[in-house]
Amino acid sequence: MADITGRDLIAYRTAHFFEDGDLVNLGIGMPTKCLDFLPEGVDVWVDTENGAIGLAGAPDEGEWTDPDVVDAAGNVSKLREGGCCFDSFTSFGFIRGGHVAVSVLGAYEVDQYGNLANWMVPGKTAAGMGGAMDLVAGAKKVIIMTEHCDKKGASKILKRCTLPLTAAGEVDYIVSELCVLHRTDAGLVLEELAPGVSVEEVVSKTDAELVIPANIKSMI
């Protein structure tokens, strides 16, 4: 496992937050990779906000699945035995009502106060927030999976988000390819480091102020 890096490492570590039996909601894109890295003995139920629990990934080539079962990206998905479907109103009741154990999302920006921006870049994109605002406001634990810096090398983990917010103060953990950060009342704590990554490297690549404890664990 020590050779896992980059996005795989982010997915691997995020998957290790899951506990057996958790109802989890995985955002479109990188968060769905978590299912490839579930720890031994951990089985999770995948919630999709468009109205199902128990999604089981894309069908194999040539495998028939019901075309009316789709994931949050609108792609046809398998539904596992014991899975169920419901309407959108019920779905968001589950989400806001705290019945989802872990919500995993990506970020444009995230900050040391647990603020998240992932739905709008004024003048550039106008996709809309979809279910993200509800997912972040309602889940018991909110984990942000993100590459530490953007394509230009600027930190995505900031003192204060500059983009329009998705939610204020709701993020619990940030998992990047360099480290795990835990948002606490004492500040953003550097809890874990990726293999071969130093505290100095994380600090130099992070805009947010970090709390550096004496003992920092390895992400793997």
Partner: peptide
């Protein structure tokens, strides 16, 4: 743009004779 869960609740309120709903979704955002 309306958050997806809020959109559901607003239409549900419209159909259920409610004057609105109270939701934490969107607090602190635009």
């Amino acid at each position: 743009f309306v958050p997806q869960g809020t959109l559901c609740e607003r239409v549900r309120a419209g159909g259920a004779g409610l004057g609105g709903v109270l939701t934490p979704t969107g607090l602190g955002t635009p």
